[in-house]
Design a protein around this nucleic acid. Sequence first.
DNA 1: GTCTATAACGTGATAGAC
DNA 2: GTCTATCACGTTATAGAC
Lengths: 194, 194
Amino acid sequence: MAHPRTDTRKQILDLAAALLQDRGFSAFSYHDIAQQLGVRNAAVHYHFPTKCDLGIAVIQRYRHRFQRYIEILDQGGADPMLKLEAYFTIPWGYLRDGGKVCPLGMLETEFYAIPEAMRVEARSLDQEIRQWLTQALREGRDQGLFRFQGTAKDKALLMVATLQGALQISRVVGRDGFSACVRQLKWDLGLVSS
Amino acid sequence: MAHPRTDTRKQILDLAAALLQDRGFSAFSYHDIAQQLGVRNAAVHYHFPTKCDLGIAVIQRYRHRFQRYIEILDQGGADPMLKLEAYFTIPWGYLRDGGKVCPLGMLETEFYAIPEAMRVEARSLDQEIRQWLTQALREGRDQGLFRFQGTAKDKALLMVATLQGALQISRVVGRDGFSACVRQLKWDLGLVSS
DNA sequence: GTCTATAACGTGATAGAC
DNA sequence: GTCTATCACGTTATAGAC
């Protein structure tokens, strides 16, 4: 029933996000998107006048999706352990989806090569993710589920850094590298290997 | 006494490496290098005919330097603890040098956008670093200096992933983020905070 | 070893018809 | 909302003089 072609905007965002996590923001072009979408260059510019506009929209969609994701978790009354598992699900999906990397990690490595307006969005995305994870870790420790040294905020930072690094290095060492890192992250939270 | 301009090749490599760790391989051009070097486009092409040649030479220099670095450590009879500190010194230097990221992390995020010949070099660099770190961790554990679960190889992978992720995320959260990650890596090796 | 000059191409972006 | 056509520019790369 879905009208074909009426949702070009969404398809552009899908492709842009995939390309971002695959090759990077500066390494894909309007032509790449137009071609894969079976449309012309100018059509993409109609929806997103400048590449910066497109970049911002892609990041904002990550932000909105993450917010919806955690709202659902909260409404479902998920406990910290479930929240942690749900969080790990995200990079796992990227890995399976052709070895994509974390969008935030990609934007950080390109940080000095992207427009300031995109950096602002990237900062917000990072802050929202780490803030939520920090809270989950704090609750988990208070409930005796997790055990770790230092602040929950620092632990969240460590986990985000490790996961994004692990996703990247998996491109070189293979997928098993990622599972090895996740296993150790869990150990270092005082969890037995599942 | 140094002859000015006789070592253009070296200066090109210096600039290319700095640009790689700053913005990424696909985000700098021959023009960037030529300009900062006060020389013309074609002069750079004389030393490195294609950009792929340049990329390979840069990575190979990282490899050679790392080999020399660990040879000196070994000749000095460094114990595992000193080796670990020496290893941490590398990303610390990158961080202080304008918030540069790990070259390997940069190459991994750009992995699907760089020529195959560069990927091969990147794989070698990764392997050499992780192999050395694995051995250092193994020795350290055998000597009762470090304490960790799982294989030394997996622990080395985790540390490399974490450090490269931490360097990247520091661009968003600031330099203190990196120290926080290093502190936790040490804790998780059974070391008290220094 | 560096220069000038230029080729060949890809890029982001815009104007205007349909 | 998509098209054709085009622009201005930056990119990698090469030829040939000095």
